[in-house]
């Protein structure tokens, strides 16, 4: 019962998160200067988004030594170990928001905070971003902890 309640509340939270108004985010020189929410990110919440299959599911593509307790790290994206040594906060934010505007159109990585230029989006996800603005900030806060 408790498990079911947790799952249900998780679903509820997700729908609330994606129903929020989508902000225009500008990526300039591969960076987004300001926090999307004006609030600092929560690295602990960001870690959950990183591994959550129905959240960011970043682990599906990115190996991450910090999560060695989790099974099944993907291989299609760069390994996240030491990612905070390679990118600034503002760069990481831009990559999570829309990596195509940082790396170019060829990248496999989905845009996590973007609704434009998409084709045949399933009704359930129409007009919604993959992550909420706060979740983007949380993931960025988590990534900033990944230093070598």
């Amino acid at each position: 019962m408790r498990f079911a309640a947790l799952v249900l509340s998780g679903v509820f939270m997700a729908s609330v998160a994606s129903a929020e108004e989508i902000k225009k985010v500008e990526i300039v020189d591969g960076a987004v200067q300001a926090s999307l929410t004006g609030k600092p990110g929560d690295a602990v919440a960001g870690a959950k988004v990183f591994k959550g299959r129905r959240a960011g599911n970043c682990l599906a593509c990115h190996g991450n030594k910090d999560m060695s307790g989790e099974q099944f790290h993907g291989e299609t994206g760069p390994i996240m170990d030491g990612v905070a040594d390679r990118y600034s906060t503002e760069q990481l934010r831009a990559i999570v928001v829309n990596s195509k505007k940082v790396f170019g159109d060829h990248t496999l990585m989905p845009a996590f905070y973007e609704v434009d230029r998409l084709s045949r989006v399933a009704k359930k996800f129409e007009g919604k971003t993959v992550l909420s603005a706060q979740q983007v900030e949380d993931v960025v806060a988590y990534l900033l902890t990944l230093k070598e």
Binding site: A60, H73, G74, E75, L108, S119, V121, F125
Partner: peptide
Amino acid sequence: YTRYGQLDMSCANCHEDYYGNYIRA
């Protein structure tokens, strides 16, 4: 080769560019 959906991926993104690699499990 067309990217579709909220995750904005084409068949090629996974099955041409990354076959032989794991995506999660």
